[in-house]
Design a binder for these strands. Structure first.
Length: 650
DNA sequence: TTAGGGTTAG
């Protein structure tokens, strides 16, 4: 072999794609240098860390397999690569291989503290207590369980598996835990929902750093204790970027959308450089709140910033546009991506199109994704199955469901089974839906039965609805919407005694349903409307306009209120009057009054739109020559020239 | 040339 010239190692540092790694590899292979341990190690490292896409991992693994004597470093790098990939199980296989070798004669590679740290991370990512505790035993046998880094990873692994006591035992046995180990234990307390333990541990900490406070803030935010998080934040003198990000993300997670935006602005004013996490956090707030104007402002910021080519920020932006009702802008962000799209980019776009009923485009995109070499994952399949179910494409949905396992080796999860029940149920194939549920290899959850109940409600199947309801009474007895749904089914077929019985049981048990509300953004301000009569402030304006619209609609639009909808929608609205007072109608009336005529009216509703409102929107869009986009609990309805993008299938 | 704790979108 030619003596190795290690100066070529630096060549790999510039590789950001598998293609460039392959080019250098081909060159080195010609001169026999690629098997040099240092060079081979660097090649594997580059594939697993700098690129880390599944194709790069496979390439590195295949190359590794051709080496005569891979060393521990190479094993560790691959174990690390797989631990954060879609197939963390491969980390275990490699680790076991390394562990078996170590018993052989000669000086075979043996697992070291790095190997344990990486493979434990795989167990944590899979939340596999069984694998994690077996690895703990192995670490003990190798005399590495007391190693500070291994011990800290063990604490995190147990926390991730929800085993606070095991984490505590590892921590208590550490001879000299440092601040990182204390922080890991603090995180474990919060992860296992032990707020009191977390508070006590925090008081006992002999040393604290910025991460300790950030763990506390994040722990409180995840537990919904926004004010506790805020008071920790306010007590801090020095706040780093992670502290600010933790607040922004925490606010977004707790639906404090305006505050997420406010803290992002404050962060900029304080001269703290936002990171991709700040942008993802604030954009997710915009997405959830449906704040289109703010999304556009943030888009402008991104275009002028160092995030221009950041794939995660681009994905968050595209998702925000699609959830704010501007799927055209989402598509434009997607089409103009200058960096390689990843599985999340494709999935967001597919799901965005599906939510709009643009199902053919979603299916086309799925095909293009496969062609581009990006592998769909579990969430991509949820999106494409959702697309099929919302368009009544039973055959196609079924073929995607099979493809998941047959082509991509992905076992369908409960969400995929849910999509299939919805696919059959929505299309009125209730017998098939029930048969599918009965034959599921995993235990049907309350959501599955609720999906079936929803389908029975659309298609008026009382017999099956009762069966679904019986299951729900066991799995989730206190769910008010299930009872309302069943009472609606009875109401439609005129079984008033049963309706009354359900209503009485609900009032005896003091059950309250979710009140319906709709929101509209006008001049950067959000206005929220609830159903029922409430004549104050801006609502008065909405009522007046709605009255005017109603008269015009009845005169010239051929609008007849859909009385049945009252029954169908009882679950979704505080019913105080009639369908005329539904919150989405008020929001649209307000939009017509306040917004410029050329603008699209965007309304967001927390529940599903009812049939009557759907009809109302169609006629208004035509009579007033205005585009209306309504985002409801499950999808978008885009009304234009008297028809809706959902083609009335919803 | 590889680690452990804090924030990350579908």
């Amino acid at each position: 072999m030619i003596s190795a010239d290690h100066s070529c190692l630096t060549l790999f540092n510039c590789c950001r794609s598998l293609t460039s790694v392959k080019q250098i590899h081909a060159h080195l292979s010609k001169i026999g240098l690629d098997v040099d341990p240092l060079i081979a190690g660097k090649l594997i490292l580059q594939c697993c860390t700098a690129i880390s896409a599944s194709l790069a991992l496979t390439y590195a693994h295949r190359f590794f397999g051709c080496l005569k004597a891979p060393n521990t470093f190479m094993y560790n790098t691959l174990i690390r690569g797989y631990s954060e990939s879609q197939s963390p199980g491969c980390s275990f296989e490699l680790f076991n291989q390394l562990n078996r070798n170590s018993g052989c004669s000669g000086s075979p590679p043996r697992p070291d503290s790095f190997s344990f740290a990486f493979v434990l991370k795989a167990a944590a990512n899979m939340s596999s207590f069984r694998a994690g505790s077996q690895l703990h035993c192995q670490a003990f046998l190798h005399g590495l369980d007391a190693h500070l880094f291994v011990g800290t990873t063990l604490i995190s692994m147990y926390a991730e598996c929800g085993r606070g006591n095991s984490a505590r035992r590892v921590f208590d046995e550490m001879p000299q835990p440092n601040v990182v180990a204390w922080n890991a234990m603090l995180t474990a307390c919060f992860r296992c929902s032990d707020l009191e333990d977390a508070r006590a541990l925090f008081e006992r900490m002999p040393f604290k750093n910025s991460a300790s406070f950030n763990v506390q803030i994040s722990g409180f935010m995840k537990a919904g204790k926004v004010e506790s998080a805020r008071s920790v934040f306010n007590s801090l003198g020095l706040k780093d970027d992670v502290t600010w990000n933790t607040m922004i993300v925490g606010f977004a997670q707790n639906s404090y959308f305006d505050e997420a935006l406010m803290y992002f602005r404050d962060m900029l004013h304080m001269g703290i450089r936002p990171t991709e996490v700040s942008l993802i956090g604030v954009l997710s707030a915009c997405a959830d709140a449906g704040m289109l104007v703010s999304t556009k402002i943030l888009h402008g910021f991104v275009e002028k910033s160092w995030f221009l080519e950041n794939i995660s920020v681009r994905n968050a932006l595209l998702d925000a546009y699609s959830k704010c009702g501007d799927v055209g802008m989402a598509r434009s962000v997607f089409d103009h991506m200058t960096v390689d799209r990843n599985v999340i980019s494709w999935t967001c776009m597919i799901s965005g199109l599906a939510m709009y009923g643009r199902v053919n485009e979603a299916i086309q995109l799925f095909y293009e994704m496969e062609e581009s070499g990006v592998q769909p994952d579990r969430i991509t399949f949820i999106s494409i199955l959702y697309a099929c179910s919302h368009a009544g494409l039973i055959e196609q949905g079924h073929s995607y469901f099979s493809k998941m396992k047959d082509v991509y080796g992905l076992d369908p999860g409960i969400e995929h089974y849910g999509c299939m029940v919805d696919l059959y149920g929505r299309a009125g194939k209730l017998a098939e839906a029930y048969k599918f549920v009965s034959q599921m290899p995993i235990e049907p959850t309350d959501t599955i039965w609720r999906t079936l109940l929803g389908a029975c409600s659309i298609h008026g199947n009382v017999h099956l609805a009762q069966r679904a309801r019986e299951k729900l009474m066991v799995l989730d007895p206190n769910n008010s919407s299930d009872r309302v749904l069943l009472s609606n089914i009875y109401a439609v077929i005129g079984q008033w005694k049963d309706v009354a019985a359900i209503r009485n049981s609900m009032s005896t048990e003091r059950m309250k349903k979710d009140p319906g509300w709709s929101m509209i953004e006008v001049d950067k301000l959000a206005y929220k409307f609830t159903a029922g009569r409430n004549y104050s402030g801006f609502t008065q304006e909405a009522y007046e306009k709605l009255g005017e619209i109603m008269s015009r609609l009845k005169e010239g639009g051929g609008y007849v209120p859909e009385v049945k909808s009252v029954l169908h929608d009882i679950e979704d609205e505080e019913k105080e009057g009639s369908v005329a007072l539904h919150s989405e109608k008020l929001a649209v009336a307000f939009g017509l009054k306040r917004l410029h005529k050329s603008k699209t009216i965007h309304v967001m509703k927390n529940l599903r739109i009812c049939k009557d409102c759907h009809e109302f929107m169609k006629i208004v869009s035509q009579l007033y020559d205005v585009d209306i986009v309504v985002r409801d609990r499950s999808r978008f309805h885009s009304f234009k020239d008297g028809s809706c993008s959902c083609k009335d299938y919803w």
